[in-house]
Design a protein around this nucleic acid. Structure first.
Length: 499
RNA sequence: GACCCCAUCGUCUAGCGGUUAGGACACUGGCCUUUCACGCCGGCAACACGGGUUCGAUCCCCGUUGGGGUCGCCA
């Protein structure tokens, strides 16, 4: 490998559904690497033991493959700088953490979470932008070592300079300055021995010879910490390039509460991977002529990182649909499209699952059409009247649906059984008979009060489509006001606890 | 609240000191057509504001405003 090879990476943390923001960063990283005959690396950042899961990792890998973004090095396929899963690199991190401590650039912190929470609250109230009082920073190393030896629980924090300014360069924005005083002594190793993002990302990006860090804007504020680590280690930092954040219609950071954000949702509603890639590619970037439809290869050929525009683009599903339609109309013969359609949902396995729950409701084969329409459509038409819960008005129904939505979001596996017990629990807590509680759901999910069994249907449709349909139903009933939503959230938290 | 980032039609964007400020989505008028859709032709619609710099500012600088992000033993 050449020393000046362009190497980019995608570093998702496997803590949920594959996100379109991940696809966005993946695309730009991929395209930049390929444009320069470089390498694109996939690294799994699973240092959060609580939330990371192999299922999520699989889902992310699967959706990236579906999109057609191939990586040169990564878990499974390996590469010269592996392993490519951070949970398998613990010894490496410890080596570097020890070095930082030995050289006086990091120190053990014995503060309890409670103490930290209190301090943070106090300082925040006092208008400070940092939240830690550096209580353990000046414990003599010998004493600290003793306490560690004695088995006291500790984390490791890095020593941020007390004064001065950190200046660094962002490829798109130029010089960015930030006072060290506004930055906390960041924890770099947690009590469970796992590194935090900040340490792991710096060590890995260096060891994996990453030349350009292409990631979301939400990381800008932590660059100084990273820059400092590079300095501590005596390493040359890579080029930083922070992409603008994809937005909801209200301009806030794209979130699943307000928008479908799962790549799988787009896949299941029948968006073609080339269209999704193309669409995401025009968020902040464009071909030099007016063409809006372009292939991955065309993007690779013409891409320049510095051409990215910085306004946070709104992810506009309408335009995506238009683009997708162009692909369908312009790029496929009827036979080719049939291929895609079968692959998407007209295959035997899928049909069979549906037939299983329809069989009992069929008196002739042609009932199939009416009975299963909701499995093959994106948006379904709803009638507001039918949507209402027994003895409730639209706002009340809306609130119940919202609670259901929040509960569904917490579900880690969207299976029939889980959905059933979720509703059973809700029915008890809300004191609404299960059959009344589920009734509006039949309308929301299948568009009809007479339909396939709810929990099976949701299971087959999957979490993304199901949740979107419920969200649509809430919309149909008239969105809840901000005030009501807040009140409801409070009530919900007290009723169901947070998390 | 503190800090950081950003700012052209409702939305995605072109523009990089002199333009009737261009294209696309959405909306809309018409044509095509057995309907619808597609397609084609047209319309509506933007430089956030205030100061500089300049012969001249959408463009450069400063401020204001607005929006967003970050302030975790999450990434």
């Amino acid at each position: 490998m050449k020393d000046n090879e362009i190497r980019t990476r995608l570093a998702p943390s496997p803590t949920g559904d594959p996100h379109v923001g991940t696809a966005y960063q993946a695309l730009f990283g991929y395209v930049w690497a390929k444009k320069n005959n470089g390498s694109f690396i996939l690294r799994i950042e699973d240092t959060d033991r609580e939330r990371s899961s192999r299922e999520s990792e699989k889902a992310i890998i699967d959706s990236l493959k579906w999109l057609g973004l191939e990586w040169d090095e990564g878990p499974e396929i390996g590469g010269p700088y592996g392993p490519y899963r951070q949970s398998e690199r613990l010894e490496i991190y410890h080596e570097y953490i020890n070095r930082l401590v030995a050289e006086g650039n990091a120190y053990p912190c014995f503060c309890s979470r409670e103490h930290l929470a209190d301090v943070r609250k106090e300082r925040q109230k006092a208008g400070s932008s940092s939240g830690y009082d550096r209580k353990c920073r000046d414990i003599p190393p010998k004493e600290a070592a003793k306490r560690v030896e004695a088995g006291e629980e500790f984390t490791i924090r890095m020593k941020i300079p007390l004064e001065g300014t950190c200046v660094f360069e962002d490829l798109l924005r130029g010089k960015i300055e930030k006072d060290w005083a506004s930055i906390d002594d960041q924890v770099i190793m947690k009590a469970d021995g796992f590194p935090t993002y900040h340490l792991a990302v710096v060590v890995d990006d260096h060891l994996m010879k990453i030349s350009h860090i292409i990631r979301g804007e939400e990381w800008i504020n932590s660059v100084p910490k990273h820059v400092l680590l590079y300095e501590f280690f005596g390493w040359e930092p890579p080029v930083f390039c922070h992409l603008p954040l994809l937005r909801n219609t209200d301009k806030s950071k794209l979130s699943k509460r307000k928008n479908p954000v799962s790549i799988n949702w787009y896949r299941k509603t029948g968006i073609l991977p080339e269209a999704l890639l193309n669409f995401v590619g025009m968020m902040g970037w464009h071909l030099s002529d007016d063409r809006e439809k372009f292939s991955l290869q065309e993007m690779v050929d013409n891409f320049m990182l510095e051409d990215i525009s910085l306004g946070g683009p709104v992810f506009n599903v309408d335009k995506l649909l238009w683009l997708n339609g162009r692909y369908i109309r312009e790029d496929f013969s009827t036979d080719e499209l049939l291929e895609r359609l079968v692959e998407w949902g007209l295959n035997r396995e899928h049909f069979r699952k549906i037939l299983e729950i329809c069989k009992g409701r069929m008196s002739c084969l042609s009932d199939w059409g009416e009975l299963t329409g909701h499995f093959f459509s994106g948006r379904i038409s709803l009638s507001k009247e039918e949507l209402l819960l027994k003895d409730m008005d639209d706002t009340e129904t809306s609130e119940i649906l919202q609670i259901i939505l929040w509960e569904l979001e917490k579900l880690d596996s969207f299976s029939k059984e889980n959905i059933y017990s979720l509703f059973k629990g809700l029915s008890e807590k809300l004191d609404i008979k299960l059959k009344y509680l589920t009734q509006p759901l039949y309308i929301a999910i299948s568009g009809n009060a007479v339909s396939t069994p709810l929990f099976d249907t949701m299971d087959i449709l999957g979490s993304d489509i199901s949740r979107t349909r419920i969200r649509c139903a809430i919309e149909e009933l008239g969105d809840l006001s901000k005030k009501r939503l807040k009140l409801l959230e409070k009530k919900y938290d007290s009723l169901f606890g947070d998390s």
